[in-house]
Simulated assay, not measured.
Amino acid sequence: MSVIDLGEYGADFTANPYPYYAKLRAQGPVHEVLTPDGMPAWLVVGYEEGRAALADQRLSKSFSALGMPLPEEEIVGPNLLIVDPPDHTRLRKLVTGEFTGRRVEALRPRVQRLTDELLDTMEPAGGADLVDSFAFPLPITVICELLGVPAADRDAFRAWSNALVTGDGSLSDVEAVSGFGAYLDELIEDKRAAGPADDLLSALIATRAEDGDRLSLPELRALAYLLLIAGHETTVNLISNTVRALLTHPDQLAALRADFGLIDAAVEEGLRYDGPVENATLRFAAEPVVIGGTEIPAGAIVLVALAAGDRDPGRFPDPDRFDIHRETRGHLAFGHGIHFCLGAPLARLEGKIAIRTLLERFPGLELDPGAEPLEWLPGMLIRGTRRLPVVW
């Protein structure tokens, strides 16, 4: 099997990877590749194989076990995405008790108010960059309020997040992670000193398991880091990608406008069709592993292409068609297995409220016909555009 250099596909692969994934999948569900930034990896492009790989605990998330800790683990601490059981089991148990459906549902009125306020501000202009004016500020405000990050600190947080996730070049990864980590230490210490409060970070500081176990400072810092980054960046692109799909499929947009009872289905189809996470975060084979009939050697990096799995015709018929009436159960947009996204209920809540309210408020919403071509986010992790110019 020859190694496939994804970098040779150029900018077209970043803009629209789906035809390339389809071509690879037609040749087999697993391929040895070089990513566009030159990293050797084994890419899983089939749905069943990807779903199995996401739940396979022989594929480790802990690069410390290889003696190669990732920068965020060395600087910030161990978070849920880069540890394996039993550490993952312990951390997730401590966190899940606070990140409940009840807490998320209680946010509904606040999410609706924030949505309305942002649209009030946007409306007089007759047009805007939907990412900068709406899809970014909504989830960042929600997650910061949920965790208890002061409003005055959110600009600094945005700079760190942009540097880490979208590679805007303003800071190196180490500079961004270090700045973020130092800030979170101060925030946690301030909350410890202030005592009990009605925010998630304060609750996590105070939480104890039945056996008295609690989160250490590095664990708290790493968890807050993960929630702040993952808790907003994916939702930004959930909103903007789904709006873009609707605006480029007028029949589906008309169906949703005619029956907003379809909003749940529209968000789920948006997640399947063009979800915010293109590939799951890195795994490596702790031992030789056979996936889809291909043996992956011990120590090799494994990338599970969520975007490819969700366009697998063996699971979703006519997968390149955006159809808000389709059955989407089992899509991989939030992952699968023990690392299934903890924030999925919050992302879904924000997406449904944001998209429905936007379409209700702006019946003439359309992509700005005079805008420059869209600029796609680099890399193979986050799927989305830097801007989404719209008019109404």
Rank of each mutant, 00 (worst) to 15 (best):
I75P: 06
V149P: 13
A135W: 03
A159V: 15
E123L: 13
D116C: 04
A128H: 03
S133M: 12
P85I: 07
P124V: 02
V131M: 07
I140E: 01
D87C: 03
L119G: 05
M122V: 14
E73H: 12
L114S: 01
L81G: 11
G101W: 05
P137M: 00
V76Q: 07
F134N: 00
V83G: 10
R108I: 02
G101H: 13
T141V: 05
V149N: 13
L81A: 15
F134R: 01
E123T: 14
L107V: 03
F99V: 15
V131L: 08
I75H: 02
A151H: 14
I75A: 02
P137R: 01
V95T: 13
P139V: 07
D129W: 06
R108D: 05
T100A: 07
A106C: 02
D129V: 04
P86S: 06
V76Y: 01
E74G: 11
E72V: 14
G148Y: 05
L91P: 11
A106Q: 12
V76K: 02
P150D: 09
T100P: 10
K93Q: 15
P150G: 10
L146A: 10
L138P: 07
V83T: 15
V83R: 10
V149I: 15
E72Q: 13
F99D: 04
G148H: 09
V142Y: 06
E98P: 03
R102N: 12
R102C: 03
T141F: 00
L147Q: 04
C144Y: 05
L80W: 10
E105P: 02
D129M: 06
L91V: 10
A156T: 15
A125D: 13
D116N: 11
R113W: 08
D116P: 06
G127F: 06
T141I: 03
N79R: 09
E98L: 13
A128I: 06
F134K: 02
P109I: 00
R102V: 10
R90T: 12
E117N: 09
A125P: 04
E74P: 00
G148A: 08
G77P: 12
D129E: 05
L138I: 02
G97C: 02
L94R: 09
D132R: 14
L81W: 08
R158G: 01
Q112N: 01
K93G: 11
D120K: 03
F136E: 11
D120F: 01
V95F: 08
D84P: 12
R113P: 00
T141P: 02
F99H: 07
I140G: 00
V76R: 02
V131C: 05
F136A: 12
L147H: 06
A156H: 09
T100H: 05
D116L: 08
L91N: 10
G77R: 07
G101D: 09
P137E: 01
R108M: 04
P78K: 13
T96N: 14
P85H: 05
C144W: 04
T115F: 05
H88G: 11
P139M: 06
A159Q: 14
E98M: 08
G77F: 11
L138V: 03
V104H: 07
L119I: 07
I140M: 11
G77H: 09
A159D: 14
E123C: 00
V83I: 15
F99L: 15
I140N: 09
F136Y: 14
H88N: 12
T115M: 05
T121Q: 13
P137V: 02
P139L: 07
C144I: 04
F136H: 12
